[in-house]
Nucleic acid binder design. Structure first.
Lengths: 200, 200
DNA sequence: ACCTGAACACCGTTCAAGT
DNA sequence: ACCTGAACACCGTTCAAGT
């Protein structure tokens, strides 16, 4: 599996070449490119750390979230594949089953489980999408800001300019933190769930 | 712009055909497919509602978030294009400038702006990615759950099964809410910012 | 059951030639 | 300045033929 050269580099013909075979022989093992993609995505999902159903839900879901985030960064094509509508596979089912189980055991209603799970998944996917899209490596923020600053019109975009200047001047690093939003969410979900415990 | 047939349906040749021209004539207006994608994405970003810099930041950022969410749903290919690393254009700059300005005026430090902005963007993108990937339309949740229930092994995935059963039985709808996670985030960001006002 | 070559209907892009 | 046809180097997939 070539996740070092990007998704578009993985053609049936090249994949076959890497396997010392012809492109057509692949069709004996897989129905088509779509099934190949599903199998690849399943491989990623199986790398997610399953929450221990009887563990404390906050720490369990936080650990899982961090492992999902790491897996999505290891396989940069995964989120792209997620954007093609697809029926849930057993890998997805296993993952959601553990998440649902963990929250159910913590006293969440079905609706509360869904809403909490969805909000946490949102943060994971959305944070990763931003990081994958960001054109600068973390250790080059300052030099990149210095380089880009002249291209950010002070008159048109004064606040973006000021922000970039702060990074260029070394006033602060400019790096964001995956666990910041995650912790905010988990804590506010906990408060929300406690407040609505009998309401649902 | 054909955003009804999906991104892969938009080939240079077909686009040219729709414009009553040959594929090669496009290259007189655009450098290549990559630039076309950048222009398309810019078009989407320009649909984002700019926060009023002097408005109350919570309501401003909430309104913007909802408009971004709507734009991303209108153009389902936008998130896919976002997943290809790209330098920021003036459309992105204008959008971030307004967001930064709004939060700066509310007393946020540069770091607080970045962290808050990033967390909110995460929710928007991540929520949308899940919704776009979800194979069932909202008004078909119950019938879909009834249909899928037998395929979710009670022994292997007891909690996922129970959750699907609740939807199939009509105990609850199963729909999630974009504004749920958004509100949790905005409120906890407000509390976090107030607490760290002088620390930063 | 597995692999193969030839073929089909597509791609994005270059390039020399036209107006 | 804009458009064009022909060509190049690719795609995914089908199909009939081989072992």
């Amino acid at each position: 599996m070539a996740d070092q050269n990007g998704l578009e580099a993985l053609s049936m013909r090249k994949l076959a070449g890497a396997l010392n075979a012809t492109a057509m022989s692949i069709y004996n093992h897989v129905k088509g490119k779509e099934e190949l993609h599903t199998l690849m995505l399943d491989h990623v999902i199986n790398e997610f750390e399953h929450p221990d159903i009887d563990g404390e839900w906050k720490t369990m879901l936080k650990r899982r979230a961090i492992s999902v985030y790491a897996a999505l960064k290891r396989h940069k094509w995964a989120l792209t594949l997620m954007l093609t509508k697809s029926a849930p596979t057993s890998a997805t089912l296993r993952d959601t089953d553990r998440v649902v189980g963990c929250l159910r055991n913590a006293g969440f209603s079905f609706k509360q489980v869904d809403w909490a799970h969805n909000a946490i998944e949102s943060h994971i996917y959305g944070y990763t999408i931003q990081e994958l899209n960001f054109p600068v490596e973390p250790d080059e923020y300052q030099s990149a800001a210095q380089h880009f600053l002249p291209h950010i019109s002070l008159k048109e975009f004064p606040h973006a300019h000021a922000s970039a200047k702060a990074v260029a001047d070394g006033d602060y690093h400019g790096m964001t933190d995956f666990e910041f939003g995650l912790d905010l969410l988990i804590e506010s979900i906990a408060a929300w769930q406690a407040k609505n415990q009998q309401a649902e």
